[in-house]
Amino acid sequence: MGVGIQVENLNAWYGNTHTLQDINLHIPANHATALIGPSGCGKSTFVRCLNRMHETNPIARATGTIRMGDLDVYKDASPVEIRRRVGMVFQRPNPFPTMSIYDNVASGLKLNGFRNRRILDETVERSLKQAALWEEVKDDLKKKSGASLSGGQQQRMCIARALAVDPEVLLMDEPASALDPVSTSKIEDLIFQLKSQYTIVIVTHNMQQAARVAENTGFFLNGKLVEFDSTHKIFTNPRDKRTEDYITGRFG
């Protein structure tokens, strides 16, 4: 089951660029939340702050408080511990090229030292089923390399890989931007299925996608969270003029 995320006064920098400014919001548990905004607005930085991935870049830093359930992300645990509880799906499918499909999906467990074969088998099957990939790959799980799948299949395998560690939160950074329309709709169906069990945060530049999958939507602009509300409200009756300009396509 997912947990809610409370963000207070989050600020982030890349070198001297102030990429996130005073972000405050509450992401409810077991719902999908979409983050929209023009490129470079800080939405990707924001999700990378949630699992402390932005720290992997030596020039990046962040201040503020993020609470995931009862856990203070920046105080109570190391980045490694946080990331074990938060799954992440990236913009482009990034399978491990030297591993089979099975090992790709099991990697989060195996690389963390999990050795129980029976549970590994079960988990790989469960995750691939959740990612709606099981039927397509079940016959050559250990024979085929993860990199030999098609782009859409690779992305669903990456989702399965993220789900295999049984996370509470699933972050998706433009998960369909590199995919064709058919694969995109499969990913969207998937998000729709998964959001009852996980807290999903999805970054997208595709507003229709946000409207289709998310209950809540946040609009980022120039490092600020302009507006955060129910998706219905954002798309039909935004409070802020800038949100309206963006969703009606009137943005510079």
Binding site: N30, E81, R84, F114, D166
Partner: peptide, 30 residues
């Protein structure tokens, strides 16, 4: 309006903490 996301479907059955979650939470901070 029909295109907007509907609230999530039926609540899944609540299970105890999975063996995976338990295992990972016991791994050190690294």
């Amino acid at each position: 309006p029909a295109q907007f996301a509907a609230p999530p479907g039926p609540e899944p059955v609540e299970a105890g903490p999975s063996p995976i979650r338990e295992f990972l939470s016991k791994r050190g901070s690294g």
